[in-house]
Amino acid sequence: MSYAIQAEGLVKSFKETTALAGVDLAARSGTVLGVLGPNGAGKTTAVRVLATLLRPDAGRALVGGHDVVREAGAVRALVGLTGQYAAVDEMLTGHENLLLIARLLGLPRREARARATRLLEEFRLADAGGRAAKTYSGGMRRRLDLAASLVGRPRVLFLDEPTTGLDPHSRNELWDIVRGLVGDGTTVLLTTQYLEEADQLADDIAVIDRGRVIAEGTPDGLKEQVGGQVLQVRPMAAQQLEKVHAMVSAVAGPATKTESGLVTAPVNDPELMPAVVRRLDEAGVRVSELTLRRSSLDEVFLSLTGHRAVEETTTDEDKTEALV
């Protein structure tokens, strides 16, 4: 198996802040590595080190087999970077932004123009290509920024929170683009605060918090590692909620109930499900919903770090906590 990105013991401090406190990362060639972490976890710092923009204080990293410090030039020649904030020149048109990169990469004029035009088309920016980028919407800027990082046909692509601030439609679109690139053999390292995003795109996930990798594995593996599954029961009649809650708690351990009439319990033993069904049946309780599902990555994160990944507005779960 070959690795396009390998990092070992990366440390980086800014004055008092330790942004990276010994981070190991590895991305297999042609796969997506999702780096998942909350604000300030060190995601951007890690990306900047790997993209040769920051020198690590300690540790080392290879990208495409080249050392990011000693062979920075070689690394730069094979990576593309889309930073957390769209780094486009607002004064230039979309076409000129891409042309600039193409020319800097040494493409002859005609070829550079052709590549800029083709990328604009691929990213649905053909109509806006002649307009200054400062007139672009947030989503268009993101797309232009991503297109700019693809001008050099990078073998390794770094995407730092590529979908933050995008609407669901643009986000799906970007996911498709990433899938396409990976299909063509590109290795992608993608940072995100969205558990769903990592779940959707990543082959492997590294969860980082406060400059450390606190868990890693495949999305499925991670979910199993931390807690397996969640059992949910919804009684047909709302007045039986208490009764069902007590029953599930008795069989599966501490359960929670929501105002919407759902009883939820984390379970590790698959045998519990039939047991719960038997008890419900014996008691003559009719249920409208009975599911055993994998824990979401959000729940994974909560159990790994003891705090939530993102501060959310009140959700079903929050209400549960208020109720219990």
Binding site: A51, L53, G83, Y85, I101, L104
Partner: peptide
């Protein structure tokens, strides 16, 4: 961030 983009190029 434009300088970062430029600095990430060879």
């Amino acid at each position: 961030g434009v300088l970062d983009r430029l600095r990430s190029l060879p």
